[in-house]
Design a binder for these strands. Structure first.
Length: 748
RNA sequence: GCGCGAUUAGCUCAGUUGGUUAGAGCGCGUCUUUGACGUAGACGAGGCCAGAGGUUCGAAUCCUCUAUCGCGCACCA
């Protein structure tokens, strides 16, 4: 076979643009992304092992960034490897409504373009706008995922806010409510006055701030505070029971003293939470606006008084300062206290932390509000459990489920160091505030009518509105729906009892594909998502959501900074694909980046793997121009001694990377493949061949077979990482009964 | 405060359970090459593997401490 009969495109340098979109279409048309289809057409055995994974659903807040490309490159490689091992392989796509992030984004856009707030539109019209935006984002995102070559089963695509997921969310809510694990309570929560909603503890960013520490005379005591404006209502003074300086004061003693707006009666409380070393060892409590103080108040059953309203303004109990915003009020109040001689001294340069809403909101003002919570400590009897250490019917708690699922080895976290982080988080975990005062999201499935409260999947009556029922106006934390993702995408609750293992079709997914094999999120959502999935899956299904959590790091810019809008350092994955090809981008993101490690994006690196793709292309050209296709015999056995050695070394290398793949060391497998293909196969084996081919003898035949065989194996082994070019090359190689490479077997 | 990482060539980073002269990409130097590929090839320069101590026949790898940077958690008002 001469060069003239080679595929025309092979005569030119590799051009990803000519190849990639065509190949993706061919994959989609083949149906091989769908495990049922693979069985139907006979490329996968019906009783084969299964592999399943859900895509961490990207937020519909705009477009994907390089971090998503990194994530999907890793996942697609894992998925393709599983598929090439003959498994029934399912990778479920979807997107996340990302309640607070999306609402915030749309509100900003609307205010900028139309000068209107969400209240100007009203709930329904505003939600129409958000939905429209979300749909556009979704389409952009899906297109981006196509371009990356991700082999997702689009027939199973899900959205965290669609009908099926709504059913799952409401079912989960009801079951947890019935078990007493969801309760409504007046508790101290993180209130964002700017976005007018609560946020969970995990959504808070703490920012260091240098401020003044005011030492105030509180009767016979000196108290230290950074926030004098909250102190109007403080009627309790707290000290350590063993603090000898204050031993003359007894628990519950009443003391009359002069305070900001006149005389008050203060009550002494002794509590060992007080740090005797800090300040004067005495503090007053503001239970309504401070979490620590709230806990003290709860312990001693103290009265709680609201000082600041939900917009951050002082209430009437602040006397003449009522109506002032706390920021403006502080200096005035300090001035007043100085006039009254209540200020002992002021330390400047006091470092303390301010809570801010990490979702783009403002400073958090703790408030006591009636909210919905998930009780993580409450004991309950679990109906059925396959979690080792918790028997069906046993008494357990959500915390215990989360902890045991990992300690018993059913969930393995990679890298292992994140297990410590995970346990540490569980140990400090408080009840999870799940209600948000947002409009976009799952509205809480609770209806009120007078004193009556109805919790259900459907409203209390068809004509509930006419009957005077009112639905809770809050929505759920977006992570509530994300936490159900591994099974809400696999037919829960609809097919919870009917799914049959071994039978095809989405209605049986729950039996076939759950627990999922692996999940691959970044470490920044270890608590938000990974831990909550373990919680929900444990409670609702009595099993773990995934067997392995492969945690990846954050992709940063070339200077090691996070990609962020304010720095405007974002890179569009499509631009990189356009310039270098998806294969090159994927390879550059995977190679050499260990689990959990951050990495700096380098365009140079992408370029390097574009060169690699071209190298592979040229290797193919060389080999195809030097063999007669008709001559190639898949059962050739007359190897020369040298070639036998080369084959042996090659296959050892493949065994080695197979081991890497089985242990999710993709960063090493790719490195080894790259080295072998270029430094050994091209530079040594092929170079030597040129001499051998000068004599067309037995050695030449052996060598020709070696080259084709090795190229086949390398092409197949590179397929999980560089799916497009390898699929293209595969179609040109002399192969009997050729299937698409995506469903060929991993080389051994 | 508690915890977790990182520190390896000019730059960005690998080095999986400790095992012969420590690797890659990019960059740099010299040369080669026009029948696979200049998007190439050959050769090379460049590293007391943060520092100190310890375990070991043997340490970049394990232990202890120190320094610097980064991150997570935390009810010091």
């Amino acid at each position: 076979m001469g060069a003239s009969s080679l595929p025309e495109k092979l005569l030119k340098p590799y051009d990803p643009k000519q190849t990639e979109s065509e190949i993706y279409k061919a994959w989609e048309k083949s149906g091989f992304f769908n495990p049922d289809k693979c069985v139907e057409v006979g490329v996968v055995n019906k009783d084969a092992d299964t592999f399943s994974m859900v895509l961490p659903p990207p937020n519909v807040t705009g477009t994907l960034h390089l971090g998503h490309a990194f994530e999907s490159a890793l996942q697609d490689a894992i998925v393709r490897y599983a598929r090439m091992n003959g498994k029934k392989t399912l990778w479920v796509p979807g997107t996340d409504h990302a309640a607070i992030a999306t609402q915030e984004k749309v509100e900003k856009v609307l205010y900028k373009t139309e000068g209107k707030t969400r209240h100007d539109f009203g709930r329904n019209e505003f939600l129409d706008r958000v939905n429209k935006f979300a749909e556009q984002s979704h389409n952009t995102i899906v297109n981006q995922i196509y371009k990356l070559g991700a082999s997702l089963d689009w027939s199973r695509e899900a959205f965290t806010l669609d009908d099926k997921r709504t059913l799952a969310v409401r079912t989960a809510f009801l079951k947890m409510y019935d078990a007493g694990l969801i309760y409504q309570g007046e508790r101290i929560v993180n209130w964002d006055p700017k976005l007018q909603t609560t946020v969970s503890d995990d959504e808070i960013d703490w920012i260091d701030e240098t401020t003044n520490l005011y030492y105030l005379k509180y009767g016979p005591f000196i108290i230290a505070t950074a926030r004098p404006e909250t102190k109007f209502g403080d009627k309790y003074v707290v000290m350590h029971p063993e603090d000898k300086r204050y031993s003359q004061y007894k628990h519950r003693d009443n003391i009359t003293l002069e305070w900001i707006n006149g005389p008050i009666i203060a009550t002494v409380i002794k509590d060992s939470v007080i740090d005797m070393e800090f300040g004067t060892g005495v503090m007053t409590v503001t239970p309504w606006h401070d979490a620590t103080d709230f806990d003290i108040a709860e312990r001693h059953n103290l009265k709680k008084e609201q000082i600041i309203d939900l917009s951050g303004k002082l209430l009437p109990n602040a006397g003449e300062f009522a109506g002032l915003h706390i920021k403006k009020a502080r200096p005035l109040i300090v001035e007043r206290m100085q006039q009254k001689g209540l200020v002992e001294k002021i330390d400047n340069g006091y470092l303390h932390r301010i809570a801010t809403n990490s979702r783009g909101g403002g400073s958090i003002e703790p408030q006591i509000l009636k909210q919905w919570f998930v009780d993580v400590n409450k004991e309950f009897a679990i109906k059925k459990s396959q979690i080792k250490g918790i028997d069906s019917g046993a008494i357990t708690s959500l915390k215990q489920i989360m902890r045991l699922s990992v300690t018993n080895g059913q969930v393995k976290i990679i890298p292992e160091r994140f297990e410590k982080v995970y346990f540490h988080w569980i140990d400090n975990l408080r009840d999870w505030c799940i209600s948000r005062q947002l409009w976009y999201g799952h509205q809480i499935p609770v209806w009120y009518k007078g004193d009556r409260v109805y919790v259900g999947i459907e409203p209390p009556a068809v004509s509930w509105q006419d009957d005077g029922w009112i639905q809770d106006s809050d929505t759920l934390d977006t992570w509530f729906s994300s936490a159900l993702w591994t099974f809400s995408t696999l037919g829960w609750p609809e097919f919870a009892n009917s799914a049959k293992k071994g039978e095809l079709g989405p209605e049986n997914d729950l039996a076939n594909f759950h627990p999922t094999t692996i999940i691959d999120p970044g470490y920044e959502i270890l608590f938000f998502w990974v831990a909550r999935m373990v919680l929900m899956s444990g409670f609702l299904l009595g099993e773990v959501p995934f067997k392995t959590a492969y945690i990846h790091g954050i992709l940063r810019d070339s200077k090691g900074r996070k990609f962020s809008k304010s720095l405007d350092n974002g890179v569009d994955p499509l631009e990189m694909i356009d310039r270098y090809g998806a294969d090159a981008l994927r390879m550059s993101l995977i190679i050499g980046v260990g689990p959990g490690n951050d990495s700096a994006f380098s365009e140079q690196k992408v370029k390097a793997y574009k060169l690699f793709a071209n190298k592979l292309w040229n290797i193919t050209r060389f080999i195809l121009t030097n063999i007669e296709t008709a001559e190639y015999d898949e059962n050739f056995s007359d190897w020369t001694k040298v070639d036998t050695t080369i084959r042996g070394e090659r296959d050892n290398m493949l065994k080695d990377i197979t081991d890497d793949m089985n242990n999710y060391r993709l960063y090493m497998a790719t490195e080894k493949l790259y080295q072998y293909v270029w430094r050994t196969f091209a530079d040594k084996v092929i170079e030597e061949s040129k001499e051998i081919f000068k004599d067309n003898n037995k050695a030449g035949a052996s060598r020709r077979h070696l080259l084709v065989e090795t190229l086949k194996k390398m092409t197949a082994a590179l397929h999980p990482f560089m799916p497009f070019i390898t699929e293209e090359i595969w179609s040109m190689l002399p192969i009997k009964n050729r299937k698409m490479l995506i469903v060929e077997r991993w080389p051994e």
